[in-house]
Design a protein around this nucleic acid. Structure first.
Lengths: 190, 190
DNA sequence: TATTGTTATACTCTATAACTATA
DNA sequence: TATAGTTATAGAGTATAACAATA
């Protein structure tokens, strides 16, 4: 099979690489993965000046919302391993954004608390998140944004996604989702 | 600052972890990242029985579409480093799905070709992708799916995303996008 | 004995930088 | 000298398992 050109798809002259532009739209499922990854990446970039990663922000928010939860509980809430939480908590504590406090009832337990600085940081993150959204959805008017949010919300609920928690931890292996060009549209018919 | 309970947000009694369920909808940008990551993860799972990763499928599709391109060109097309492509090409070639052929004009160049088995695999992947989409968008009727695809397509174009190519390679560092709970909605006003 | 938080280890994935063979 | 592909090295990130303190 080293000689053959006979099996090359004739739909494309093999004279050069196909330009990536293709007028036809990609399937919605692929667009979701593509735009979603882009959104996450951009948000991560906007976070860099603050010296925070999306993971930090996720933890910060959870601590801000359910202040006083133990690390075990927070890990469960985020669907990640407690051992992984340790490093994140360390880093946020070094920055003075959260702190550990020993539970009076059970001295094994570390209770996580948001500091004033942490709250201020959270406010700043809010600004960034909204700026991020405005830039991301710049092509859509406000009614279209509402429609998009509604459709996505229904998908999220139907798929059993926990509100406010990214998938990609849990028991799914590495989250790294590399390439995967365009998912086929109608290759099945042949 | 080890004694203080004074700064704990009183909005939440620190008697236990907040249940993750929250009726209010998340911002559209967060939903995009969340649902997008979920879509990618689910697609990856469906691919497992074939012994392929999303990366394999992406490469397979590019080779299928622009048959006869060099590795250098394919790497450029996918926006990833040529050295990373080598392993993927190796694996697909071991499975007999693609093959390398020396270019007659320039013997440094390896031209990538899709085999018959590769084409059949691509057909199977097409079936999987559509089943995936049907399951992912099960909560939406066909008109809503079209609306979603349209909105996402406009965002993708506005954001300058290459059709059919996932972001997350290029010069952005590791793609791993861990947690990040709910992005704030209106924390700015305080 | 069970559980909380921590540390240590191993594994996966990726980018960067050498290297070879051709041009 | 420059380029295509390859190999080698190193770094980041994560899961798993072992550990000490407390219950």
């Amino acid at each position: 099979m080293k000689d053959g050109d006979s099996h090359i798809a004739p739909e494309q002259a093999p004279s050069g690489p196909t330009p990536p532009a293709r007028p036809r739209g990609s399937p919605a499922a692929f667009l979701l993965a593509q735009v979603g990854a882009h959104a996450a990446a951009r948000f991560g970039e906007l976070l860099e000046p603050l010296g925070l990663t999306p993971a930090h922000v996720g933890l910060l928010r959870v601590v801000g919302r359910s202040s006083g939860a133990s690390q075990q509980e927070v890990a469960e809430l985020l669907g990640m391993f407690p051992s992984r939480l340790v490093g994140l908590v360390d880093e946020l504590q070094e920055r003075g954004l959260i702190e550990r406090a020993a539970s009076p009832h059970d001295r094994r337990i570390n209770v996580l608390l948001l500091t004033d600085a942490g709250e201020r940081t959270l406010t700043g993150v809010g600004r960034i998140a909204r700026a991020h959204q405005d830039r991301l959805l710049g092509a859509l008017d406000s009614q279209e944004r509402a429609t998009l949010a509604s459709l996505l919300g229904r998908i999220a609920q139907d798929q059993g996604l926990t509100p406010g928690v990214h998938p990609g931890f849990a028991r799914m292996g590495p989250v790294t989702q590399p390439l995967s060009a365009d998912e086929p549209q109608k290759r099945d018919s042949d």
